[in-house]
């Protein structure tokens, strides 16, 4: 079809949808709609993982991001019932600063990705690397140290959340 393979077509369609939904996240007036568009974006990204033979990553992406994290986001937004009228509007200075900061983040990301072609990371192992068993072997043999570092980072975040969310013990029992 027009000189492209089916994989290239799928890549193009998924990328278009992901970018479109990503824009819709930003432009929706209603925060609940934003979250739902973000969920759709995650599904498109999971499709990209599938195209790269990373089945495990794709399904875990859906379970963790779409199935758990976004449900909690939705949960909070529904409880707070945000909308334009009650929400304090940001001034234009804040908006410009946010745009500049976001643009610099994009700059850093593009800069770091630009050099990744020479590293040849995408050809690590065989094309079956995305299967659960092969991925597990690689993670726990070749990349054990980074894996453990990541888990310590998560543990630290967990402890921090529990500390922040904990109610202060009531010292004064006489009420």
């Amino acid at each position: 079809m027009l000189g492209y393979t089916i994989t290239q077509w799928l890549f193009g369609i998924l990328s278009f949808l992901a970018i479109m939904f990503g824009l819709m996240v930003v432009f929706s007036r209603n925060p609940v709609n934003s979250v739902l568009y973000l969920v759709l974006t995650f599904f498109c990204i999971a499709g990209h993982y599938l195209l790269m033979n990373a089945q495990f990553l794709a399904i875990v992406h859906i379970v963790v991001y779409a199935g758990a994290i976004m449900v909690l986001f939705l949960f909070i937004i529904m409880l707070m019932n945000l909308n334009e009228d009650s929400e304090p509007q940001k001034t234009w200075i804040t908006k410009i600063i946010a745009a500049v900061a976001g643009g610099m983040m994009l700059f850093v990301l593009v800069g770091s990705l630009k050099g990744s072609e020479q590293l040849g990371l995408s050809t690590y192992g065989s094309s079956q690397i995305g299967l659960v068993k092969n991925l597990g072997l690689v993670l726990f043999k070749d990349f054990l140290f980074p894996f453990e570092i990541a888990s310590i980072l998560l543990l630290a975040a967990l402890v921090g959340v529990i500390l922040l969310g904990r109610k202060e013990p009531v010292m004064d029992k006489k009420l």
């Binding site: 495990f56 379970v63 758990a68 939705l74 949960f75 529904m78 299967l131």
Partner: peptide, 22 residues
């Protein structure tokens, strides 16, 4: 018979809650 059938089930179940929430 996908080789990640168990994870597929979890994926579908975890997305199922959106129906109720929405």
């Amino acid at each position: 018979d996908i080789n990640i059938g168990v994870l597929y089930l979890f994926g579908v179940v975890s997305v199922g809650v959106y129906g109720i929430m929405i």
